[in-house]
Design a protein around this nucleic acid. Structure first.
Length: 194
DNA sequence: TCTGCGATAATA
DNA sequence: ATTATCGCAGAC
């Protein structure tokens, strides 16, 4: 029943993949896992908010690689955020993971995120979920399909919402009006209510 | 519960 | 200079 998503799942534009990623599971080596409840699509060269907008650089190299890999970047001098690379190789599409419902390994998550007051805050935010799951620079480029570095995205049979909630993306100064944030309404682990 | 602000360093 | 953020302080 539960298994890694196939490569072809990711071989589509990020705007198609993003809503389909809702309710899938992210798992890491030590069995910590969370259910994806909030994502944002980034559309490569067509998207002024995308790290890929100005073409390939050392930082965004993973985005320009094959789909189904993890793109991890460092920002604000202290945070890591994680994306799933989408589209054909070279398209540089990406889906940012913004919120998870903690599913397993809650004790380990609490240990690395002592500032989370409630369990619902453990993975509520793109940088928070990276800390909770132990995702950092070392996992940039990890293959989510074969799990070469322990990180996978799996389907346990829970379908995405028939009609996902949609909004503008968060934290941007450009292209804020594009409705490319998708989330499970009312879910535990959203980075913000709506 | 909400709002504003400082931290902190890689990137272009 | 800017940044795909977070946690704290202070106001209600």
């Amino acid at each position: 029943m539960t298994g890694s998503l196939a490569r072809d799942f990711y071989r589509r534009p990020s705007l198609e993949v993003a809503p389909d990623l809702l309710n899938k599971l992210v798992t890491v080596e030590d069995a910590r896992s969370g259910r994806i409840v909030e994502v944002e699509a980034y559309c490569g060269p067509d998207d002024p908010a995308s790290h890929a907008f100005r073409g390939p650089t050392p930082r965004n190299a993973t985005m320009f690689g094959p789909p189904g890999h993890l793109y991890v970047y460092f920002t604000y001098g202290m945070h890591f955020c994680a994306n799933v690379v989408c589209g054909e190789e070279g398209e540089a599409g990406a889906v940012l993971l913004r919120g998870l419902t903690p599913v397993a390994g809650l004790d380990a998550m609490r240990a690395v995120r002592p500032t989370a007051r409630r369990d619902r805050d453990l993975c509520a935010g793109p940088a928070r979920l990276c800390v909770a799951l132990g995702i950092d620079r070392a996992l940039d480029g990890a293959d989510l399909v074969d799990g070469d570095r322990g990180v996978r995205v799996a389907d346990d049979g829970t379908p995405p919402p028939a009609v996902p909630a949609v909004s503008g993306r968060i934290g941007l100064r450009v292209a804020t009006e594009r409705p490319w944030r998708f989330f499970v309404p009312g879910a535990t682990g959203l980075s913000r209510p709506g």
